[in-house]
């Protein structure tokens, strides 16, 4: 693997793999419900066992997201959260958690509409480790991947249950850090039950990521340890949770202590199945 690709994300997966552990990846909407609470939330997640943090930069039109993340994103926007707020947030968090990879998850327009190079450079300066962009397809990614490689940012591309093998190969070879498999036909949000096609897709995708020596993480709709364990059994090297966390945050917005307590115990349970 070229030196530039050995970013913090890849290193973390290597470290976990030596211990026989899987990665727990946690998504939160950046600076939601407010900057201070969000810092406490992220600290709680990491202290309870989260390995990687995804910060969602809120976008006005989040087409891959279900109602929970939509609601949190719109509220964050209404409260004046901008990409710069999210940059500073990561910078602050990294003072305490320098070993935890932080990724940005956001939509193409946020990254591309204001000079791509400046945006990625600013992210790097603020110690962001990589990007997940759900509406960026490999065909449109040349310039982005070029700049991200130069800067040493991980470029995490997504795959879906219906992605053809040939395309999975292209996705695996252009991704760095890990490949993000979307578990279901649908948007982000909790699901009551996964169907067989999800687990089949995890196994199929894992064969290909294995060949390309890149980890595979699975997300969308994971809401309990059992879901996580099933994903791992099918071959996932990591599991991603987002809406379930945001649900706890939204439901307990008026009682921070309770919110942090629930988040902490939920993460401990989830990390339990990763060990």
């Amino acid at each position: 693997m070229p030196e530039t690709e050995r970013n913090k994300v890849s290193m973390l997966f290597e470290k976990l793999s030596k211990k026989g552990e899987k990665a727990l990846i946690c998504y939160v909407v950046g600076c939601y419900p407010d900057i201070e609470t969000s810092k406490e939330i992220v600290s709680t997640l990491i202290d309870s066992g989260a390995d990687i943090i995804e910060i969602g930069i809120p976008f006005s039109d989040p087409m891959a997201d279900g109602p929970i993340i939509q609601a949190a994103s719109l509220k964050a926007l209404a409260r004046g959260i901008t990409p710069s707020t999210c940059f500073r947030f990561v910078n602050e968090m990294k003072k305490k958690y320098s070993n935890t990879p932080f990724l940005f998850m956001t939509y193409s327009n946020i990254v591309f509409s204001n000079n791509l190079r400046n945006f990625l450079t600013a992210a790097k300066k603020n110690q962001v480790d990589g990007f997940i962009i759900p509406d960026l397809n490999i065909e449109e990614s040349q310039e982005y991947v070029g700049i991200a490689r130069q800067l040493g940012l991980a470029t995490i591309f997504l795959s879906a249950p219906n992605t053809a093998k040939k395309r999975l190969v292209e996705i695996a070879s252009i991704s760095s850090g890990f490949v993000y498999m979307v578990s279901i036909f649908g948007t982000t949000g909790s699901r009551s039950k996964f169907e067989k096609y999800t687990f089949d897709a995890v196994s199929k995708t894992k064969e290909i990521t294995n060949r390309h020596k890149i980890p595979l993480a699975v997300g969308f709709g994971i809401s309990n340890p059992k879901d996580g364990r099933n994903m791992i059994k099918s071959g996932a090297d990591g599991i991603i949770v987002g809406s379930s966390l945001l649900k706890l945050i939204l439901e307990n917005e008026n009682d921070k202590e309770k919110m942090l307590f629930y988040l902490g115990s939920f993460i401990k349970e989830l990390k339990g199945v990763c060990r």
């Binding site: 891959a64 759900p134 065909e139 040349q142 879906a160 252009i174």
Partner: peptide, 24 residues
Amino acid sequence: MKQSNIGKFGIFGGRHVPETLIPA
């Protein structure tokens, strides 16, 4: 990966969608 010309009008157009929609 080479930049694709699929569905392009100059620099405009293309495909910018969640991966699930690509097969469709």
